[in-house]
Amino acid sequence: MKLRVKITCLLLLPIIFLSVTSINASAKMKDQVLSNMIVYKIRRGPTIDKDIVLKSFTVKRNTWITDKYVPKEGGWEISTKNFHSGKYVYYFALSEQWAWTNTKEVGSTSRFAHMSWVRNGNSKSWVWSKPGSGYKKFNISRFKHTIWTTDHEAQLMYGKKTIYFHVSHGKYSGWISHNSLKLAPHSTLTISPLVDNSSPRNADGSRAFYMNKNEKYKAIRFANNSNTLWVAFPDYGDNQYQSLFDSLDNFGNEFPANQAVID
């Protein structure tokens, strides 16, 4: 349960914090204000009960803020590009009126199939040094027809653009939102392995599943790499190519083209 405090003070009078119990402080977050909210500018005292409210003002909707929950104050210290909470003065909000949009916090990172990609439409997304953060390395719009290769995927904890791919092409590499890319030109195939118990490989090199030479499997082959097939799990179904981009886990299994019969 979120804690709240009451400020029973007048301008330039000591601020009194009530009903504050033990709770862990949160990490700093970058969020966007959902609606206009009241913020208090407060001068720090030697102890919390000696803090003094200097003024209050309104932070407008859609303002980007950095916020951190502070248990002993029972609320959030915030900063914006126009003011900053520091050693002697801090800016205080009693309630969180913002969206949780901290795109910098990575939930998980894993290896990803070395598949081929190109820019999606007229995307002008930035390629970052870290998933959704760090510094901007270059804009994908500079590379209209470049084929990129993925090797890792990152899942972010907040925000709409929650999936980032690590891509590379020659000396260029970085992290980009997955919806800024689409699969490079490719053909869809039906294949059978030359021998029983053949097995395509996952992104981490482990066996994905076993294939039998008397059975048929769905696969794709990129125009820029005729030596490799990307095989779908056999139980994926007949509509696999209609939502290929949204179901990459089913096709992220690498198999040598010279070990298969292609129908």
Rank of each mutant, 00 (worst) to 15 (best):
Y158C: 09
T101G: 06
L194P: 01
S177I: 07
Y90H: 10
P193G: 04
S177F: 12
S177P: 04
R142M: 14
N120T: 06
T101P: 01
K216I: 08
N214Q: 11
A203P: 05
W126S: 15
L189Q: 11
I140Q: 02
V106G: 02
K171L: 11
V127W: 02
H178F: 06
K182Y: 02
T150R: 03
S199F: 12
E96M: 09
N214R: 10
T162L: 06
S192Y: 08
Y91M: 03
H186P: 06
F138V: 00
K87Y: 10
R207Q: 07
S206T: 15
G121P: 02
L181K: 00
N122Q: 14
V127M: 06
N224D: 12
F143K: 05
M115K: 01
F222Y: 09
A184M: 03
Y88Q: 14
M115I: 04
N82S: 14
L181F: 07
K161P: 02
K171M: 10
K104Y: 14
T146I: 07
D151A: 08
W126T: 12
T188V: 13
H166C: 03
S206Q: 10
I176D: 00
L156E: 01
S133N: 12
N102K: 02
S133W: 07
V89K: 02
H186V: 05
V195M: 08
T149E: 14
S108V: 12
Y90E: 06
H84I: 13
Y88N: 15
D151Y: 03
Y88R: 13
Y210R: 13
S95I: 13
H114V: 03
V127C: 00
L94R: 09
L94K: 09
N179A: 04
L181A: 00
A113G: 10
D151H: 08
Q155M: 14
K216E: 14
A113W: 09
Y172L: 15
R201P: 00
K144E: 15
I140D: 01
N214K: 12
F165W: 13
R111P: 07
H114K: 15
K81L: 05
K160V: 09
L181P: 04
Y135E: 11
I220S: 00
S199Y: 12
P193Q: 05
S187Q: 13
K136C: 11
H169S: 15
H166Q: 10
G134T: 04
W100Y: 13
A184P: 07
E105R: 07
E96D: 12
A219E: 01
H166G: 08
Y217S: 00
A113N: 06
H145L: 14
S125G: 11
I176L: 01
V167N: 00
W128A: 09
S198N: 12
H178Y: 08
S198W: 09
N214A: 10
H152D: 10
I163F: 10
N227C: 05
I191E: 01
G86R: 12
S116G: 08
S133C: 09
L189N: 05
E153N: 10
F222S: 00
Y210M: 11
V106F: 04
F138Y: 08
S123I: 02
W100S: 10
